[in-house]
Design a protein around this nucleic acid. Structure first.
Lengths: 198, 198
DNA sequence: CCACGGTGTCAACCAGCGTTGGCCTACCCT
DNA sequence: AGGGTAGGCCAACGCTGGTTGACACCGTGG
């Protein structure tokens, strides 16, 4: 292997191992020593390349949800589209354990929590604004959508509630789609099953 | 202070401090030394009374959601009732930071995750079964309800998404009630805003 | 060929952690 | 009154983790 490329290869070995361990064990549960050991290199290399543990974490967690733009979403099946995208991103073809890692870590690590807030602010909120046609309650809609999606991730991937793990993907998409659609486009002051509020 | 009561008072001092710190910093982020220091006693007392850190955690996290029975819930406003109960339990009159603590800790601590699964299994699932009249899809309904409620807790109390923190309680109840009602009693294969699925 | 810069290793430091055992002290019981 | 017991504190151990610095290695460029 050429000399100049060796650095790059160990860099990626470190960061990809770090992603896995952070995802498995959270921020505090992951040790630099463990990352180095599993990557087959010395702990001091981690320090050299990433400065400190926070630096490694920041390098490992660089999230792009890869959300489509509003124009590419079928308006009449928007719930299915969002739910499908989300699940593809977590357990399907585009699977990226980074997002779950970030969620896990954000529970006990303020840096991670802030990073997650940024992801929401910069990627989710704009999309919801676009979808809802810059409705004045777009913030509220985005927040509600966030609760449902994050709750799904928590129950299925982090807590692994048996009832949640047992559901297959299509059923999940079908179950969540109406709610997501409701949060995005529905009448928030009306019942979801057709009956108007008293 | 009488001799025999002194023990009890430091016991409760320890465990209540532990609750707060665990809630703030998670399992690994909380140190016995810190608990002892904030409680104004010696770390070794914690060991004497609770054996070890796991024991302290178990003592600190003993959750009773205090869910009402199905008979006491108004069927036509079941969503509002559940949402209201949940929020009262977290930030209202019955506020109990233990639940949030457990949720936070469960992200990185398998013991806590298991405990949370038990809470779901033993307290949430039976109620949902009762409400849904032992419907065959009660598990699915309970799981979906779980995602929404846990997602709410995560976004509002753990991640503190600004859009979520900003909403007042009545608005929150009104926004969530239709979805909760839908998961409990609605037609899961039908859109929430009145339009039947194609 | 040989110095130089970047790659990698080794050993150690230092702080913080959970945990332990010994000790003092204050109370209760006889 | 006095001995036993339980509450409480102190100092220390062993360990692990992040971090550091010195040193060996290897290509490349002069």
């Amino acid at each position: 292997m050429p000399f100049t490329e060796r650095s790059e290869s160990t860099r990626t070995a470190i960061v990809s191992t770090a992603r896995r361990l952070f995802a498995d064990r959270g921020y505090q549960g992951t040790t630099i020593r463990a990352v180095a050991a599993e990557a087959g290199i010395d702990p001091s290399m981690v320090m050299r390349y990433y400065g400190n543990k926070e630096g490694l974490f920041a390098a490992a967690v660089d999230i792009d949800l890869g959300l489509p733009s509003a124009a590419d979403l079928p308006r009449d099946r928007i719930g299915e589209a969002i739910a499908g995208h989300v699940l593809r991103r977590w357990e399907g073809e585009l699977a990226d354990e980074l997002i779950i890692l970030l969620l896990r870590s954000a529970c006990t690590n303020e840096t991670a929590a802030e990073q997650l807030r940024q992801v929401f602010q910069r990627q989710v909120l704009p999309l919801v604004r676009e979808i809802s046609g810059d409705a004045p309650d777009a913030d509220r809609r985005a927040a509600l959508l966030g609760t449902q999606v994050i709750g799904l991730a928590m129950c299925r991937y982090v807590l692994r509630l048996p009832s949640m793990v047992a559901m297959d993907r299509p059923t999940l998409v079908a179950s969540l789609a109406p709610v997501l659609r409701h949060y995005l486009l529905g009448d928030l002051d009306r019942d979801l099953d057709g009956a108007p509020r008293p």
